[in-house]
């Protein structure tokens, strides 16, 4: 290995004029979204094919895991955002403090 952070040598950067990788082209990304939507729809429709053995009633209803997963994630992201308002600090927060301490 010619470079490595322990020796303080920077990793190589993208060469100038490098073509856009096929995976991140707009067309590919659109295709991925369409494929994702199809899979999601198929999974929800899959509820028709299985015989759920519900433990608590509501978890046996149609599409429960889909809306519950989506809703839980939205709730957690929003809660984290709200908590961040109070608890987020610059990532040099403790370093600045230390200068005053010593």
């Amino acid at each position: 290995m010619s470079f490595h952070p322990d020796r303080g040598v920077e990793p190589p950067a993208a060469p100038p004029g490098e073509p856009v990788h096929w995976l991140v082209r707009a067309g590919t990304v659109r295709g991925l979204w369409i494929g994702f939507a199809v899979v999601l729809a198929a999974l929800v429709l899959g509820d028709f094919l299985i015989h759920p053995h519900a433990g608590f009633g509501i978890d046996g209803t149609f599409g429960f895991y889909a809306w519950y997963g989506l809703g839980a994630c939205v709730a957690m992201v929003l809660f984290a955002k709200g908590l961040g308002v109070f608890l987020k600090r610059r990532d040099t927060y403790y370093d600045e403090d230390r200068d005053g301490d010593d």
Binding site: L40, L43, G69, C73, K88, R90
Partner: peptide, 24 residues
């Protein structure tokens, strides 16, 4: 279902997830 719809939530909420130079 649970996992892929969580994935959907991630990409829908991506604007809220952008990283900042912060600690908690």
């Amino acid at each position: 279902q649970l996992l892929l719809f969580s994935g959907l939530a991630f990409f829908l909420l991506l604007p809220l997830m952008q990283r900042t130079l912060t600690i908690t």
